[in-house]
Computed example of a mutant assay.
Amino acid sequence: MKRLRNPRTGVDQGDVGVFSDFEDGGEMWTGSGPRERRRAVQFSAAFARPPAVQVSVSLWDMDTSAAIRAELVAENITCEGFEVVFRTWADSRAARLRAAWMAIGELPHADDWDVD
């Protein structure tokens, strides 16, 4: 199998605090049922097309007296950025969360042009 390498592929990455609800009694820490937090992330430079984005937990501070239920995803991915989305439900309690992310995609080139 041959693999083609695109010399215009770029990588951007970072680490972003999604929430910290322990200190102020926020709903992720004190609530129950379905809860969601979103955090917008802007790439350092725009990609030519929406890139592939991977998110992972880099800080996880959860109460262990109940089951830990959580989902961490990237949504609304555009050439300029995306949203980190954390969801939990039932009686799970999350004090704070930080997410690491990496975007891999095609970079724009000076010779690119659109015909209308």
Rank of each mutant, 00 (worst) to 15 (best):
V53M: 04
F19K: 10
S44N: 10
P51I: 02
V41D: 11
R96S: 08
D91W: 15
F22T: 07
V11W: 07
G33M: 06
M102V: 11
D63V: 00
A95N: 03
T88H: 03
T30D: 07
A52C: 01
D12Q: 15
D15A: 08
T64W: 12
H109R: 15
S65A: 07
C79L: 08
W29S: 12
A100K: 13
A90C: 09
R37N: 06
R69F: 12
A90D: 14
S44D: 03
S44H: 11
D21T: 08
D15R: 15
E106I: 00
N76G: 11
V53P: 00
R93E: 03
S20C: 07
A99R: 10
E71M: 08
P50N: 05
W101A: 03
D21R: 14
G105M: 08
R5H: 02
T64R: 13
F82T: 01
Q13H: 06
G105E: 02
P51V: 04
A67I: 03
N76W: 04
D21A: 07
D111N: 15
R93L: 00
W101I: 00
A70R: 12
M28F: 06
W60K: 11
G10N: 06
A103L: 08
L4N: 03
G31D: 05
S65C: 02
V85P: 01
D12A: 15
R8N: 11
R87G: 01
P34R: 15
D112I: 07
G10C: 03
V55C: 04
D12P: 08
V84F: 05
F82P: 07
D114R: 15
F22E: 12
G105A: 07
Q13L: 02
E83D: 11
N76K: 13
A70K: 06
P34D: 10
D111R: 15
L72C: 01
E71L: 00
V57A: 02
F82Y: 01
V11Q: 11
E106C: 09
R98K: 14
A46I: 00
V85C: 01
E71T: 09
D15W: 14
Q54D: 07
T30Y: 12
A90Q: 14
A103E: 05
G105K: 09
E23V: 12
V57H: 02
T30H: 10
G105W: 07
I77S: 05
E27M: 08
A70Y: 10
S92A: 13
A95Y: 08
M1D: 06
S44Q: 07
D91A: 13
I77G: 05
F22G: 04
E23T: 13
V53E: 00
V16H: 10
M28R: 12
F22V: 04
W29M: 08
E71W: 00
A100N: 11
G26C: 02
S20E: 06
C79W: 01
P51C: 03
A90V: 09
R3C: 00
V55G: 05
R3F: 11
G31A: 11
I68Y: 14
E27Q: 14
E106D: 13
V18S: 06
D24Y: 12
